[in-house]
Design a binder for these strands. Structure first.
Length: 740
DNA sequence: GTTCTAGAAC
DNA sequence: GTTCTAGAAC
């Protein structure tokens, strides 16, 4: 009989993956003579080195022992020298403990008395860092056998294999237990949800499916969606290799045909319009409760893209408290434009959180829906309404050529415009939640009324066809599946009649738009949009321009209006006192536009700023002020910052904020005026300065991040740097000498 | 300008 | 694991 062959087993895994436990378990019951070489212990108390590990391994092999290399060996480079221990009488194997990072971290954080003293808080960081470098071993590195373990049962199986490895036996060569590394888990799960009786021969990594995907897919599903509910319980029986599902996403797939009319809607106003989530969730639940029973068997589904969505969880718990029928109203995590193809949720109507222009663009749901629907939606929308006032909705039948119609089964889009609490957007309600809540309620009423009108028109269609009204309410879909295209167009046109009803309403709204949304027209009026765009200012960057030109329309923000300047509080003050003095001149967008002819205006702005500084200093003489311009402002319209030097503000959040007031990017008003006077233009510093290191504005010490800087600044009492003390760049209370 | 969030840094 | 940043979207 052949001489017994030693084995070198290189364990591969992050801290906490269970390498040492694996070795212990094998060694406890193996009939082989094993040596565990652990870098943490090989140095006899000191941190061991890789060289020591190699030496110990060679010497153990010489003695005819088998060896475990118990170190992370996380990438090829780390493993290479150990693989080279291979010889005619030594096999080199790898056992990969590729367990979920979460698990490794929680184990390594919790453990006590670890050999390498890697435990507690720092362990997590190390594990995370290490997993970034992870490189799974390949046979080509020189291994004769690689065993991949992705969960506890894999590990147990590998322990058994090595425990039972008799000294005279060898294990078969090759890779064992490897999953397809980039298999589309999401796809796999989706397919599984559709086919519960998938083959159960092969293994499926339950930890992956349940942790990452199944929850996302199923958690939010309605109880009526039984298949989805059952899926996680048996998902470990499904096939590990999931073939592409050709049926998936096809509208004509009737596997789980769901003919209940359903409206999917995003939370209105809570994203970009920054409406308070608590208030919004109350209103959603209130309005759903009001409408859900009126809508017969139809369903309402609140959709949000992100799994951890606060609005969904608020609405869920409030709806549960109100005992709203969960088969008629539920929340769903997914992309509203792919609910059927990606989420298996059939929604024939989707709501769009539209903008007042009813145009594509912006971002979020509006952009996504217009993109997914294609240009036909824009055309169809235009036929019905030119614009939308807050609180209103308009129903738009989707042309059958639209992708949303063809592949998602969406027959109508209802555009809704909610109240806006975002100062950067048109129709800003400036914290007026009394009005805001009224408008948001109205928005949901309009939306659900619109949906009801679609349902009524379908019922009518069903009657025309001689069907039981409300039996299926999916006439369009039936025709789509069975009938020729002309029939679809035919029914589409009939639906339009109802759509006109909706657009009549919207015309009525248009009439009342002036009182409801006067700043809609204001926003448009005065300047022309093309002009803004050629100058490269985004829509959000126009606010100051609007205020400078029409201060009377923005009474809430403006604190002083003069012929040539407007003074306002910065909406997001970066210090205790932070004002903006706006130039009321057309075409003076930024510091770079300033020339000699503006000198008088500049000195006027400076004087007005100083006047306000005096007022503030009278209230609090410990403040210190600086007046200046940003080299490259984010907002259109030349504005002078008047800012106290405490920088004590929750709105000061990042490097850019700090450096825009404390690096040379901030151009002192006194210097700007002098440069204009002497050279005809002001020096503009590059935006790159904004990412410079963070230094205290007094003692100039450097700090690693904003929180540390802020905490330092709050207590630094060093005098200000000499340059700031010169030329009246800093403004102090008159009783002070400027050297505090 | 802000918010949101992924992922880097600790 | 949390904290923090930086980039994208608006």
């Amino acid at each position: 009989m052949e001489e017994s062959k030693s084995v070198v087993v290189i364990l591969v895994g992050a801290p906490g993956s269970g390498k040492s436990t694996f070795c212990d378990n094998v060694m406890r019951s193996s009939s082989r003579s094993w040596v565990r070489i652990c870098q943490d212990t090989v140095g006899n108390g000191k941190a061991g080195t890789k060289a020591q590990c190699l030496a110990s391994a060679s010497s153990a092999l010489k003695d005819g022992k088998s060896v475990f290399i118990d170190r992370c060996n996380i990438n090829r480079e780390q493993r290479a020298d150990f693989v080279n221990l291979h010889s005619s009488h030594v096999d080199v194997h790898a056992v990969v403990l590729d367990l979920p990072a979460k698990l490794c971290i929680s184990r390594s954080v919790k453990r006590r008395g670890h050999e390498g003293n890697l435990q507690g808080g720092k362990a997590a960081a190390v594990v995370n860092q290490m997993l970034q470098k992870k490189e799974l071993p390949k046979l080509s590195e020189g291994f004769s056998r690689i065993t991949f373990c992705q969960n506890e049962s894999d590990v147990q199986a590998a322990v058994t294999t090595y425990s039972e490895l008799d000294p005279l036996c060898t294990l078969p060569s090759g890779c064992f237990g490897q999953k397809n590394p980039d298999s589309k888990v999401q796809l796999g799960i989706m397919k599984f949800l559709k086919k519960v009786d998938a083959p159960s021969s092969a293994r499926y990594d339950t930890s992956v499916s349940q942790d990452s995907v199944a929850n996302q897919v199923t958690k939010e599903k309605t109880p009526s969606n039984k298949l989805a509910e059952q899926a996680p319980a048996s998902s470990n029986n499904t096939g590990k290799e999931v073939e592409d599902d050709q049926e998936m996403g096809s509208f004509c797939d009737t596997n789980l045909l769901d003919s209940v009319p359903t409206l999917a809607f995003p939370s209105i106003s809570t994203a970009d319009f920054q409406f308070n989530l608590e208030k919004a969730s109350d209103i959603i639940v209130e309005k759903v409760a009001e409408y859900v029973e009126k809508l017969g068997n139809a369903r309402l589904v609140l959709v949000d893209l992100s799994n951890g969505s606060k609005i969904l969880s608020l609405v869920r718990s409030k709806a549960a408290q109100k005992n709203i029928n969960s088969s008629k109203f539920f929340t769903f995590v997914g992309d509203i434009t792919c609910l059927y193809s990606q989420g298996d949720l059939r929604c024939n109507v989707i709501a769009n959180a539209a903008n007042w222009r009813l145009k594509p663009g912006g971002g979020g749901v509006n952009a996504a829906i217009f993109r997914a629907a294609g240009p036909t939606l824009e055309i169809a929308t235009k036929e019905r309404a030119e614009s939308l006032a807050p609180g209103k909705a308009v129903v738009v039948p989707l042309p059958s050529s639209s992708r949303l119609f063809r592949s998602e089964g969406v027959t109508h889009v209802i555009h809704v415009l909610g109240p806006n609490m975002n100062p950067q957007r048109p129709n800003f309600l400036n914290k007026d939640y009394t009005n805001g809540c009224i408008v948001l309620r109205e928005a949901y009423s309009s939306l659900f009324e619109g949906f009801a009108s679609i349902l009524r028109s379908r019922e009518k269609l069903s009657k025309e066809k001689g069907e039981e009204p409300g039996s299926k309410l999916s006439t369009l879909q039936d025709r789509l599946e069975r009938g020729p295209v002309d029939q679809i167009l035919d029914s589409n046109q009939k639906v339009k009649r109802e759509g006109v009803y909706a657009s009549e309403i919207s015309k009525k709204y248009k009439g009342s738009q002036d009182e409801l949304g006067s700043s809609i027209t204001n926003f448009r009026g005065g300047n022309d949009k093309a002009d803004d765009e050629t100058k490269g200012w985004g829509s959000w960057a126009q606010a100051l321009y609007q205020i400078a030109m029409h201060p009377e329309r923005n009474k809430n923000d403006v604190i002083e209006v003069l012929d040539d300047v407007v003074v306002m509080s910065d909406l997001y003050p970066k210090a205790q006192k932070h004002l903006l003095v706006l130039a009321r001149a057309e075409g003076l967008d930024r510091l770079a536009d300033v020339r000699k002819e503006h000198l008088q205006l500049l000195s006027r702005m400076h004087a007005v700023g100083l006047k306000w500084v005096e007022k503030f200093l009278a209230e609090n003489e410990s403040l210190v002020f600086r007046l200046g311009y940003h080299s490259e402002p984010s907002m259109r319209q030349l504005h002078l910052h008047v800012i106290s030097q405490d920088f004590d503000s929750k709105h000061l959040k990042n490097k850019k904020h700090w450096n825009s007031f404390n690096a040379v990017f901030f151009r002192d008003s006194v210097d700007v005026m002098e440069e204009i006077r002497e050279h005809g233009k002001a020096k503009i510093e590059d935006e790159g300065i904004l990412s410079m290191e963070l230094r205290c504005n007094r003692c100039r010490s450097a700090h690693p991040n904003i929180p540390r800087l802020k905490s330092h600044v709050s207590s630094c009492r060093a005098p200000f740097p000499a340059t700031l003390l010169q030329n009246r760049r800093l403004v102090f209370a008159s009783t002070k000498d400027g050297r505090s």
